[in-house]
Simulated scan of single mutants.
Amino acid sequence: MNKDTILDYISESPIIMAVKNEIELDRALEEDSKIIFLLFGNIVNIADYVKKIKQHEKYVIVHVDLIDGLAAREISVDFIKKYTGADGIISTRINNIKRANELNLFTIFRIFIIDSMALENLETNVVKSSPDMVEILPGIISPVIQKIKNKIKIPIIAGGLISDKHEIIEALNAGAMCISSTNKNVWGL
Score class of each variant (00 low, 15 high):
Asn96Met: 15
Leu38Asn: 10
Thr182Val: 10
Lys128Tyr: 12
Leu172Tyr: 09
Ile61Pro: 09
Ile152Val: 14
Tyr9Met: 11
Asn150Asp: 14
Ser129Gly: 03
Ile16Thr: 07
Val44Pro: 06
Lys51Pro: 09
Lys3Trp: 06
Ile43Trp: 09
Gln146Ile: 00
Leu29His: 04
Asn42Leu: 11
Thr92Ala: 10
Ile140Arg: 07
Lys34Asp: 02
Glu120His: 13
Asn95Ala: 15
Asp32Thr: 14
Val144Ile: 15
Arg93His: 12
Glu102Cys: 09
Ala18Cys: 10
Ile111Glu: 06
Asn96Trp: 01
Val186Met: 05
Asn101Gln: 09
Lys52Cys: 08
Glu170Arg: 12
Ala18Tyr: 08
Ser11Ile: 11
Ser76His: 01
Gly139Trp: 05
Ile179Leu: 01
Asn2Ala: 07
Ile145Asn: 04
Asn125Ile: 03
Val144Trp: 06
Gln55Ile: 09
Glu31Pro: 06
Lys54Ile: 12
Glu31Val: 11
Gly88Val: 01
Ser13Arg: 02
Ile94Phe: 07
Met17Cys: 12
Lys149Trp: 08
Pro143Ala: 07
Ala28Pro: 06
Phe79Lys: 05
Tyr49Asp: 10
Ile152Glu: 11
Leu119Ile: 01
Asn185Gln: 10
Ile94Ala: 08
Gly69Tyr: 03
Phe37Lys: 11
Ile154Met: 05
Ile108Thr: 01
Ile67Tyr: 06
Ile35Tyr: 06
Glu57Pro: 04
Arg99Leu: 03
Arg99Gln: 15
Lys20Asp: 11
Ser76Asp: 07
Ile162Leu: 11
Ser11Phe: 02
Asn150Leu: 12
Phe37Gln: 01
Ile35Gln: 08
Ser130Gln: 09
Glu102Tyr: 08
Leu189Ala: 00
Ser180Ile: 02
Ile67Lys: 05
Arg110Cys: 00
Ile35Arg: 00
Ile152Asp: 01
Gly41Asp: 11
Ser130Ile: 00
Glu24Ala: 14
Asn2His: 12
Met177Thr: 13
Ser11Lys: 15
Tyr59Ile: 11
His63Met: 11
Lys51Leu: 13
Asp87Met: 11
Lys184Thr: 15
Val144Arg: 04
Lys151Trp: 06
Met117Phe: 13
Gly88Thr: 05
Glu120Pro: 00
Val127Ile: 10
Phe79Trp: 06
Ile35Ala: 10
Val60Leu: 04
Glu102Met: 05
Glu135Tyr: 10
Leu137Ser: 09
Lys20Thr: 08
Ile16Ala: 05
Lys82Glu: 15
Ile6His: 09
Asn121Gln: 12
Tyr49Arg: 14
Ala176Ile: 07
Asn121Val: 03
Leu137Glu: 04
Ile97Met: 10
Ile15Trp: 05
Met133Tyr: 07
Asp26Ile: 09
Leu161His: 04
Lys34His: 03
Phe106Gly: 08
Ile23Lys: 15
Val64Met: 07
